[in-house]
Design a protein around this nucleic acid. Structure first.
Lengths: 200, 200
DNA sequence: TTTCACCTTGACTATATAGTCGAAATGACC
DNA sequence: GGTCATTTCGACTATATAGTCAAGGTGAAA
């Protein structure tokens, strides 16, 4: 029984289901990025799908937001895992992540908006970004590479500059070398010795 | 005609009107700080006032938010004008404002929440805080006192650290000397010479 | 072609929220 | 006590939104 059900489900469902779910996810991300009111009706309309279809894929809007957040998290990982594996130096990893994210924000305004909106909600994404940074910052602190001693404060400083500069990118044009200047400032804030910054 | 109307209005209205409006304003601020859904019904109930009364004082919720934002702005000015008048040094003014705000956030959690919530909406408050900081930072830049050259970036760095540390204060307990450490970090980020920091 | 599990639809109910308005309350002044 | 500008009240209408469900569509496999 179960075998047949699953086999059929796999064959028939995989495509349609995945496609529709992706549509809804994308529409949700777009509305979230735009800061629009996130209602089921709005999402369904933006996804060109009936209301009932939305509820077939998601329990409610909250679950959709969670799914968008998870997807954005994976997106981040893709952007950053290469460096995470290669770079041994925590400060180099932090620097890479920082500039990568700002550069992507500069080249993709909607992505930047999504990041900002998602960060200022209590999402899985916000938590995991914070956790990742804390690991690297704690390592840097343990190595005596930075002046700031409190990992939580270090994260707040790093995230604070990053998020606010991202907001700036959304609202104003990004001047040349913005990412680099912002990184320098963030490293100075942490109290990382100047010569460390040249790694990139 | 007008004379009588205005005289009566002044006598009769001033108290009741002001008191009720203040009640609504306070209720609105509390809900905004709590991050609750800001509906007219919720505000009216929290203010112990009928719905019609809300609409007698405010056009809609948006106008209430604007009024809360303006009030918070005045609150900020009261907190900071003493220093603004006395301190000639822009970096000393920035340092004073920075630590004052963090200390107040530490001692008044609801105030901190209100500041964060209000800052992440496009309010008059958010704009005016940014403008004030930009004036001082531009002066510091003009004096060659800081490394960062772009005033907008300088504001983003300063505001970013301040807001995120405030969020940290809300979510975690503030360790001793937090304000001071955060200020040191912010000044380092701007590239202010170390000895400048001792001003406070 | 038929079957059948899965997917999609949109109308429907229930609730929440915005905004209106006539009536009543208030209190200073006569 | 009576008058009257001002303020307050809450029921009412209209609209928006959440969530449900019976009916029908889809396409792979028999």
């Amino acid at each position: 029984m179960a075998k047949i059900d699953l086999a059929r489900r796999a064959k028939i469902g995989r495509d349609r289901r995945a496609r529709t779910r992706a549509q809804i996810l994308e529409a949700g991300a777009a509305l979230l990025a735009a800061g629009a009111a996130l209602t089921v009706d709005a999402v369904a309309e933006a996804a060109a799908v009936a209301k009932g279809t939305f509820y077939y894929h998601f329990e409610n809007v909250e679950e959709l937001v969670a799914a968008v957040s998870v997807q954005l998290g994976r997106n981040f990982d893709e952007l950053l895992t290469p460096a995470r594996a290669e770079l041994r130096d925590p400060i180099a990893r932090l620097s890479f992540a920082f500039t990568q994210c700002l550069e992507k924000a500069i080249s993709d305004n909607e992505w930047a908006r999504l990041v900002v909106q998602t960060s200022q909600r209590p999402t899985e994404f916000a938590r995991s970004v914070r956790d990742s940074l804390k690991v690297d910052l704690a390592e840097a602190i343990a190595q005596g590479r930075v002046t700031v001693r409190d990992p939580e404060l270090a994260v707040d400083i790093f995230v604070g500059i990053w998020l606010q500069v991202t907001r700036g990118i959304i609202e104003r044009a990004a001047p040349p070398e913005l990412s680099w200047h912002a990184l320098e400032a963030a490293l100075r804030a942490l109290g990382s010795a100047p010569h460390e910054n040249r790694k990139l």
